[in-house]
Amino acid sequence: MRHIISVLLENESGALARLVGLFAQRGYNIDSLNVAPTDDATLSRLTLVTQGNDQVIEQISKQLHKLIEVVKVSDISEAAHIERELMLVKVKANGNQREEVKRCADIFRGQIIDVTPGTYTIQLVGTSDKLDAFIQALGTTPILEVVRSGASGIARGEKTLAL
């Protein structure tokens, strides 16, 4: 099953390598990984999408906790949460296709953020599923490049993952 794990990590050199290394050593997979400093510059917030049964996810969570620089760990997909991912897609857009692509981007509430005579670059934000759906919807439009940030997530309501 797909899980979204949020981690608060000391913003120190080597901390991220240690965390990623843990996944490689112990054979856990990473679908996506997203990391940046928070409002507190000493802390990084990391969102990790992984797959596994309950036992594997429990081990992942415990092993993450063991890392000295890990401050907090939460499987936010266990409860109500919001998930967002940013995607930038560069497509070939000529002639009739230009209208078609624009319409499709509008339907998905994407924005065209760069234009050349032959291409569009579309920015789209949503759940990872929605981004997958957009790629599908582009149909025969030739895709030149796709950049995805990996999911970021936050718990709904009052629940927070903070110090």
Partner: peptide
């Protein structure tokens, strides 16, 4: 050495 020892120690620092 930080890279080499990372998976075989409790912690490492520089």
């Amino acid at each position: 050495m930080l890279g080499i020892s990372r998976p075989i120690c409790k912690h490492n620092m520089s």
